[in-house]
Structure formats: C-alpha cells, structure tokens
Simulated assay, not measured.
Amino acid sequence: MTTDQETSMSVTGTGATVWLTGLPSAGKTTIAYELAGRLRGDGHKVEVLDGDEIREFLSAGLGFSREDRHTNVQRIGFVAELLAANGVKVLVPVIAPYADSRDAVRKRHRTEGTAYLEVHVATPVEVCSERDVKGLYAKQAAGEISGLTGVDDPYEAPESPDLRIESHQQTVQESASALRALLTERGLA
C-alpha cells in the first residue's frame, strides 16, 4: 500500500461526532444529510442521529422539561461517542438547547479521546418561523403548544462553536461545503 492510500484509509476510518445545534427549522438535518452523502461518496462510514428519530425510538417517553432534554442529549451523546470511537462519522442534528448538556457531551468525547465538533446552525428565529418545517411555530402562535425552543423556552447559543453556519445566508450545499472544509482542516475527512 502506498503512503497516499494509507493516509486516505486512516482518514476515512477516523471517527468523529459533528453536533449540529440550532433552533427548530434552522436547517440542521438538511445540512447533515447533504454532508452525509458527500462523506459516504468518499468512502467514509457515516451515521446521522436525527433528533426526531432518537426521540421516537431511544428517548420515547421523555418530555421537554429541562431534565428530560438533558437526558435526551446525554443518550444521543453516548451513542454518538460509541459510534465515533469505532470509526464512524456521526452527524447529530439535534437542538440541544442547553450549553451544559452540550458541554457534558463534549467532555465525554474528550475523556474518551474521540473527536468532537460543535456546529451552530445560527438561523434567526424569524427565518425558522417562516420555514416552519414541522408546523411548530404556527402551533405555538395558535396556543396549541408551549415550550418551543427559542420562542417561549430558552436556547443557549454556543459561545465559541467550532463552526457557525448562517444557513439563511447560504445554500445547503455551501453550508455542507463549509462543514466539510472544517473536517478536512481538522484531519477528519
């Protein structure tokens, strides 16, 4: 095997967790799936731990209290770290509204020696409300639901993420390219 082949294989086999945090309808999941396709095309093992799917299967029964949200984030972080430690690029598009919850996940990765990147998909609430992919903002405005992150429930934006993406000012492809560039810069892609 040549040195270039060895380098390519070691990078494609290097796991990492990429946590995409942001408000509902910020574009986290769309960006994650765009990046996942690109990484798979280059031979990486990739999993997307979608927040909605996790809530349905891994965190069924949890509500949206601060404690339940923390538990949900820790469960996702645990699974992400296990996968990343085994050579998978794990893309995690999850709101994770509280800084201490995200910090605990980062600390777990650091303790285990597993690469972790935090990406803030920093889309203004007004833009998210216009997108309203799941109809949550409309339901909140109609009084049908409460506790909507960023509206009537807190969202603690990351102070110094590894990358801040303003999805309302660039295409999904540009956002995925910026994230891919970060992975390359860190020796992970």
Rank of each mutant, 00 (worst) to 15 (best):
R66P: 08
P158S: 01
A122S: 14
K28H: 08
A99P: 06
R110A: 15
R75A: 04
R108C: 02
E53K: 11
S167F: 05
T7V: 14
D132K: 01
R180T: 12
A99R: 15
L117D: 11
D4P: 08
G51S: 03
A85T: 04
P124C: 07
C128K: 00
L83G: 10
R131W: 02
S25M: 00
A115L: 03
T29V: 10
P93E: 14
P93W: 06
L62S: 11
F57K: 14
F78D: 04
R75T: 01
V92Q: 07
R55H: 09
A157G: 09
H44M: 03
H44F: 09
D42G: 13
D153H: 10
E126Y: 00
T29D: 12
L148P: 08
L179E: 06
L83D: 05
I145S: 09
T14V: 08
A26D: 04
E156A: 05
H120T: 04
K45S: 11
D68I: 03
A176L: 14
E81L: 06
V125L: 00
G87Y: 09
A189R: 10
L58G: 13
G61L: 04
V79G: 00
A84N: 06
E67A: 13
T2N: 15
R69N: 12
T71I: 13
L62F: 13
I54A: 15
V90I: 09
A115N: 09
Y98P: 06
T29S: 15
T184M: 11
Q140E: 14
S146F: 08
L182H: 14
V73C: 12
V105K: 03
T21E: 10
T7N: 11
P93Q: 14
A157N: 07
Y155P: 05
L91W: 09
H70L: 11
L20F: 13
G22L: 05
A80P: 04
I76W: 04
V125R: 02
R106V: 02
A157E: 15
S10D: 12
L183A: 10
T171P: 12
G113C: 11
L91P: 07
L136P: 02
N72R: 13
T17G: 06
V18R: 02
L58R: 13
G27T: 03
V105P: 03
R186V: 03
V88E: 08
G187W: 05
G77V: 03
G22F: 04
Y116L: 12
K45E: 09
V11H: 13
V125G: 00
Y137H: 02
V11Y: 12
L183M: 08
M9D: 15
R108F: 03
L117E: 06
S160Q: 13
C128Y: 04
A122Y: 03
R164T: 15
A138Y: 08
L117Y: 12
E166S: 01
G15N: 01
D4R: 12
L148A: 14
T2A: 14
C128L: 00
T114W: 02
